[in-house]
Design a protein around this nucleic acid. Structure first.
Lengths: 134, 134
DNA sequence: GGCACGACTTGCAAAATGCAAGTCACTGCA
DNA sequence: TGCAGTGACTTGCATTTTGCAAGTCGTGCC
């Protein structure tokens, strides 16, 4: 149990943070989640068009790292909604630092302001005929 | 000229920042430079042991992105010292956000406190016999 | 003269990325 | 009733990026 943490590279907090979210996509997923997106489809439609296989893998990785939590919101086709854990939400300060730096030093970039969007899970259009046997 | 920025993925400041430093090594190099390291050898000796080919490539990339500047500090074997530009130094706030997040959420990690080290460029032991023909 | 050392390069195997399809389980409508 | 969507993923590669191990170059030093 209490086996000492192996630390992939060193005990440095920065190095270990980068081992978790140090790639081109993870923080964009966190950004979208902070902005209120919740389903796979919404995440896949972000302007950067993350490849779907990578999105699926990142969601697993981030969940394994305790940054996001996925809870099923419907049983049958089995769909989940993804939300940030506290740990994940606190990456917000890192995102904020990136936004500031980017706007200051990369001409033309903008902060995709978060539109709370109040996106609910699929409007759940009343299923006219569905209902499986049983 | 005034050609519109292509924007690799989107105009988002975060996405564009990640296109520059969004990998496992770049920010560690920036960290070391902020901590006062200046030569290739010093950077290569960091606890994470960055592979030397990757270090050489990252230095080129960061220089091309205007994050670091390399100036020769000796002619003959031709050696450079690497320093952060203002743009690079301002990544400090991003690093700081990562340190805080890492220390709060990844047990056991620490901030490799910056030792100004006052590391000068090699002590320049007076060259006893060097001096090439000519 | 020759070994050692710092600063890079080169080669190559292994892993990650990106694109295009394919699959599964419904939903919607004729 | 049946068939074309649609959302949420998987699977298959081709390409690119890592990472490890050596190799090279030009001295410094004895």
């Amino acid at each position: 149990m209490g086996t000492a943490k192996p630390f992939l590279r060193s005990p440095c907090a920065i190095a270990n943070s980068l081992d978790i979210v140090g790639d081109k996509w993870s923080l964009l997923v966190v950004r979208d989640l902070l902005h209120g997106k919740r389903t796979y489809g919404e995440l896949a439609k972000s302007p950067e068009r993350i490849p779907t296989n990578i999105l699926a893998e990142r969601l697993k990785r981030l969940a394994a790292a305790g940054i996001i939590a996925s809870t099923p919101y419907q049983e049958h086709p089995l769909r989940h909604q993804y939300t940030l854990t506290r740990k994940g939400a606190e990456l917000g300060s890192v995102l904020l630092a990136f936004v500031r730096w980017g706007k200051d030093h990369i001409p033309g970039t903008v902060a995709l302001s978060q539109s709370p969007a109040t996106s609910r899970i699929p409007p759940k259009k009343n299923r006219s005929r569905a209902r499986r046997a049983e």
